[in-house]
Design a protein around this nucleic acid. Structure first.
Lengths: 81, 81
DNA sequence: GCGGATTTGTACGTATGTATG
DNA sequence: GCATACATACGTACAAATCCG
């Protein structure tokens, strides 16, 4: 859960949460992540916060984003396809 | 100059402009860059756009930002100090 | 092929918090 | 106390590309 009272920035909390869900399989790797507006609703944060979280995950190599498509779990670096 | 009509995003244009000014020495390397609000006024863009440009430069290793201090030209990687 | 819905990208404005000088 | 400066977070609006009936 995201805690607005925590000193940890919301976007950081959300990024950590999503990373954990990806790792655990709670978010399937074969389909796009929930859209920004979905995540916004589910976690009750602004879209800017969602985007900041996804940006962080992208910088960490956890996900990749395809414009006008969606954001996907990043493929393993060693995969040939 | 920044051209609002260009298809290139404003923050990208600004980042390129600042990088060029740093490289040419128009922006001195021994003092902080102009503050966000200064850049905002000088280039007639929003603060969010200034921040996006600086973020890009930071990701590119062109500058480093010290919270509550300012943004500085990144030191050469080969420098011992 | 058309049109609407969806989704990400960009850009703006505002407010608050924290640290520095 | 006040001004400056960056960090976070909210909101809005519109554009562009894609998807689907």
């Amino acid at each position: 859960m995201i805690d607005p009272m925590s000193p940890t920035p919301l976007y950081k909390q959300l990024a950590d949460l999503l990373a954990a869900q990806i790792k655990s399989g709670a978010i399937p790797a074969d389909r796009p992540l929930p859209s920004e507006s979905r995540l916004q609703q589910e976690h009750d944060v602004s879209r800017g916060t969602v985007r900041a979280a996804i940006r962080l995950l992208r910088e960490q190599g956890v996900v990749v984003t395809v414009p006008q498509r969606g954001t996907y779990v990043a493929p393993p670096k060693t995969s040939k396809r």
